[in-house]
């Protein structure tokens, strides 16, 4: 598999995304909401510190749970991109001429994955930077130290987030083969967020603690899911399947 060829496909998709409002708005809106909303919520809680929610003993767990929303966002953002990238080609019937070129199925699929992963990573890392600065600004007076950066967020951003993005992209490939419009594809794709939302709720209700060990275990589980989805998506994204069985 030639990375250079996959990059050609990804570069073409980047050009297309710039002209599709739904795609670039999905890249921007959710990260902006996460990075701004949570510091604002904490600011609100800090003002009402008597509730105990923003007390120094409670804050670290709360911040770890909030940080997990960066992972949920990272899984959400590529749904729109990958769905458009593949369903868009289906609608325009542009896959057949593409498949008639010397590109392999794997190179096309990798190109599609790169075009969804890179904007998501950039957007979510930028969101994480704003999120950390905002949270530190709001919590410094309560905690007496800057909570971020720490090993937790490092594990979350550098290990868990990429694994979650890949899971979302691969799931989108599978969903996209079964539907004929990008909106349906991203709607069905949202199912992949449910396990992540479950983890978030479990952390908020203190069933689990999102420390480094937990994050690594979750990453390991998602990695196993990625491997399974990789096999299904590569079996789905084969030229004969695309031309004869895709709806």
């Amino acid at each position: 598999m030639r990375l250079s060829e996959a990059w050609i496909v990804a570069s073409r998709d980047f050009k297309i995304f710039r002209r599709v409002k739904n795609v670039w708005s999905s890249i921007i809106i959710f990260p902006v909401v996460i990075s701004v909303l949570f510091p604002v919520i904490l600011e609100y809680l800090a003002v009402r510190g008597s509730h105990g929610l923003a007390a120094p003993g409670v804050l670290p767990n709360l911040l770890n749970s909030f940080s997990f929303f960066l992972v949920i966002g990272a899984a959400y953002v590529p749904l729109g991109i990958a769905s458009y990238s593949i369903v868009g080609e289906k609608v325009e019937k542009s896959l057949e001429p593409l498949l008639a070129t010397p590109l392999t199925d794997g190179e096309i699929l990798l190109g599609k994955a790169i075009s969804a992963v890179i904007p998501t990573l950039v957007a979510m890392y930028a969101a994480a930077a704003v999120f950390m600065v905002g949270i530190d600004g709001v919590t410094f007076h309560t905690l007496g130290y800057y909570y971020f950066p720490n090993w937790n967020i490092a594990t979350l951003l550098l290990v868990l987030m990429p694994v979650a993005i890949v899971m979302s992209v691969l799931f989108s490939v599978i969903v996209s083969s079964r539907v004929n419009d990008a909106r349906s594809a991203s709607s069905f794709g949202v199912f992949i967020l449910f396990p992540l939302l479950g983890i978030y709720l479990a952390s908020e209700t203190s069933i689990i603690t999102l420390d480094v060990n937990s994050l690594l275990i979750i990453s390991g589980i998602l990695l196993a899911v990625d491997v399974a989805l990789f096999y299904v998506s590569t079996a789905t994204f084969r030229r004969e399947e695309i031309l004869t069985k895709w709806k």
């Binding site: 050009k15 002209r19 325009e92 019937k93 542009s94 057949e96 001429p97 008639a100």
Partner: peptide, 20 residues
Amino acid sequence: LKIRKIIGLVPDNVGLSEQL
């Protein structure tokens, strides 16, 4: 792969990237 390098295909549906 070699065949796909020496052929050109105009499919029945033109399949252009409309946003390019």
